[in-house]
Amino acid sequence: MVKVENISKKYGKVQALNNITFNVDKGEIFGLIGPDGSGKTTLFRILTTLLIADSGIAKVDGYDVVKDYREIRKIIGYMPGRFSLYQDLTVKENLEVFASIFNTSIEENYYLIKDIYSQIEPYKNRYAGALSGGMKQKLALSCALIHKPVLLFLDEPTTGVDPVSRKELWGMLKKLKEDGISIIVSTAYMDEAGLCDRVALMSKGYCLSVDTPKNIIQKYDKILWSVSSNNMSKLLKDLKIHSEIESCFAFGDTHHITLKNRITFNELHNYLMKLGHNEIEIKTISPGIEDCFMDLALKGADDASN
């Protein structure tokens, strides 16, 4: 569906994208996962024909993003990061405008957006600017779908959105996938990686890894422990100064540590006891995507500096 080969892009001195290569298959939800500034939006703009890369090739459904941009613009749907609809038009008017852009009508592809649009239809005469965050998002998605695109680009659709609306959106994406639409979605929330079929982890313009979330986790080669005690902020400091601990980060109600050399639970337990910790709990755990990302980002930084 999408083929990206050695794409690079520079803004002035800043290397926004560095030799990015991946493929997206038909009918999959592909996630670009990375923090702000990792190059997700730039990559989106290149794929949606809004920007031209400095080097490399990118193809969308067989069309070249530079040469055949007109063809691509006909078959893709795009939802930019910001809420980019007309705030001073009503819900219905917005949808009409976007339908007309693609020379279609609301009725023609209504079946596709029905599930989503029916939730906001009661407010169709409200100005888009007066909608709540979740409803704006549904409207934006309806507008991006109105012409029945074969490929949908969603740039950070869940940023600043509460967990409930986020879950809802992912539910909608699953459904669209069943309707045969391929989806490329970017997000800064690592925990959403698990909802994608495959992901590309991105950091500072580099692609750290492209794989299924499961495989990325399987490839994690470090020993990961979770540690907790009655004084979590002191625990963090104490763990950080331990010479055998490579990294230590707070994760929810525990801290995750990786080890340089094998030490035993008991050794660590005793070390912490001596420092006055109580209710110490140490467990071996399997990593999440976030652990993998931090590990890969660290390695990536090492590679870049070498």
Partner: peptide, 13 residues
């Protein structure tokens, strides 16, 4: 500024 131009550009219009 509002980002809607981006949407219009990414369309066959």
């Amino acid at each position: 500024e509002k980002g809607t131009m981006e949407l219009l550009l990414v369309s066959p219009m």
